[in-house]
């Protein structure tokens, strides 16, 4: 393979990244709300924290096996964007939870007390006071998680990615090309590895720009927010 562009791979990575954030963001933020606003010390909280900590330590290739066994085979999604997004989504879930929880904890407790003192329920307080105040922090942390999803290879090898397809995906059940997997295949199992070297470097450059771009964006937002924050 020495001709053609990487647009299908860019599109594939785009869909997988969006799909995984659709799963990880709502679940992660909701989990973080429980951990910082509702949970009390006790066995339940310890158990949940243990689950999150250990989920964060599960190797990415094991996530790939899990996605293969559960989503691809058992639930019958096949090798697809859907299966890959679910796998990646749960992979970055602990990152999103960690970042969001920290953002919620940084909201001063006087904000909550003022809202409760005005007669708002706890749920109203969370929705209208805590969440908006913590939003910049939540977003920054989540963007870092999303950057990770864009660059992961091992979890999508058996769940979503294909080396080559002429067609752009038309449904969530289609296989896709993805930038990280494309780099791996080009670099290791092409028939003309030396001829495709420039293509490999080019694809790496695109992936690095994408991931570093996402991260620098998040870091800039955070630095600005830190300066603006007055509490």
């Amino acid at each position: 393979m020495t001709k053609g562009g990487i647009f299908p791979a860019i599109i594939g990575t785009f869909y997988l990244t969006i799909g995984s954030s659709l799963i990880a963001l709502p679940l992660g933020v909701a989990s973080a709300i429980y951990l910082s606003e509702y949970a009390r010390e006790g066995w339940l909280l310890r158990l949940i924290r243990l689950g999150i900590q250990n989920l964060a330590g599960v190797p990415s290739v094991v996530f790939g096996l899990y996605g293969l066994a559960l989503f691809v085979v058992f639930l019958g999604f096949g090798v697809s964007i859907l299966a890959g997004s679910l796998t990646l989504g749960f992979l970055i879930l602990p990152t999103v939870i960690g970042a969001s929880e920290e953002a919620f904890r940084q909201v001063p407790s006087t904000f909550r007390e003022a809202s409760l003192a005005l007669g708002a329920t706890k749920f109203q307080t969370i929705c209208r006071v805590v969440l908006p105040s913590a939003m910049p922090g939540v977003l920054t942390g989540s963007i870092l998680g999303i950057g990770r999803a864009a660059g992961e290879t091992a979890p999508i090898m058996f769940t979503a990615a294909t080396f080559y397809t002429k067609h752009l995906p038309t449904s969530p059940l289609d296989q896709v090309m993805a930038l990280p997997y494309h780099i791996y295949v080009l670099a290791t199992s092409g028939t003309h590895i030396d001829q495709t070297r420039p293509l490999q470097y080019g694809t790496v450059l695109v992936l690095i720009s994408l991931v570093l771009g996402i991260n620098i964006f998040a870091i800039i937002i955070r630095t600005r927010m830190r300066r603006k924050k007055t509490w």
Partner: peptide
Amino acid sequence: PKYFFLAAASTSLLVMALIMIFLFR
């Protein structure tokens, strides 16, 4: 809302359990 958020927080545990079940299976 409390039980809703608790359920969300428990998904990490659930995923951890599913990973073990399917790996061992």
